[in-house]
Design a protein around this nucleic acid. Structure first.
Lengths: 151, 151
DNA sequence: CTTTGTGCAAAGCGTTTGCATCCTG
DNA sequence: CAGGATGCAAACGCTTTGCACAAAG
């Protein structure tokens, strides 16, 4: 369950896929940053190690990792997709639509929902990095009448 | 609470905003379709009424309606943003990552979560059209070992 | 040596914007 | 009339792709 260093390289080798220098560097960056990061963020980190690696390779590697279920994409409300490693500790996000702040909340708050979806709909919810939009405490207090728009 | 016909025009007039023929047509289409629709879908419907209305106007009108909190954007997993009228009946979506099917589930399943987020974090969750990704019953039975990727 | 990955640059997609014109209020 | 809305086409940001070359197994 704990995702340690070099997990990604090991996984790739175990599945008989090629381990190129580019992939090794990209993997290392993903494991080091280990948060919810965008392709551009990975790219800029990668470039500091080897400036000849292209953004296209970053995208292609991210696509590969998704296919192998080693990372998951997350929508944090912006235009860019965020990625995080699978099993990196289940937690979710409260995204404030006013100040843009992102706060984490723990997975156990979703237990009830998960169970009910399973029982009532037979649906297996795959909720690894979930984002809920709304207003955070600070913004509510600052402007109690504000109505956020959301989905 | 029930959103009837011409609500959008009435709202706009009430706020002293201009009601142009283009807006009237776009509003009518949104109210008629009354589901989770994309800008392109609205555009193609609008074009059947008046082919001279541009996609840019559709986008600008959607932006306006969002600012007025009359519609809400929703991410259904695809590349396009979906929109739905506010207060059109609170319900949410189970999006199957295998077959792409979308099933609704009722809002009361979120009561527990909403309450806990409020109590523990002071966060006012604005969940109008929520999407949960995973595997639907049919796809689970067809391929019990499949692992969906999600966030 | 074959298959797969890479870099580059161009294309793609959904969405936004600059500008001249048009039209609502 | 004046300010706001529209159409057009070009630009945008993020992501994907075609192709020729490089390199892993």
């Amino acid at each position: 369950m704990p995702q340690d260093q070099n997990t990604l390289i090991a996984e790739l080798q175990a599945r008989g896929m090629r381990v190129t220098p580019q992939r090794a560097i990209i993997f290392e960056v993903i494991e080091r940053l280990s948060g919810h990061i965008t392709a551009e963020e990975i790219f800029s980190e990668v470039q500091q190690i080897n400036p000849y690696i292209s953004l296209a390779t970053v995208y292609r590697t991210l696509e590969l990792l998704q296919e192998l279920n080693l990372i998951t994409p997350t929508n944090l409300g912006g235009s860019q997709t965020h990625f995080a490693m699978q099993g990196h500790g289940a937690h979710h996000h409260l995204v404030c639509q006013k100040c843009g702040g992102i706060e984490d909340f723990s997975d156990d708050l979703l237990e009830t929902l998960r169970t009910q979806l399973e029982t009532r709909y037979g649906f297996s919810a795959q909720i690894n990095h979930f984002s809920i939009f709304g207003l955070c405490r600070a913004c509510r207090q600052a402007n109690p009448s504000a109505q956020p728009q959301a989905g």
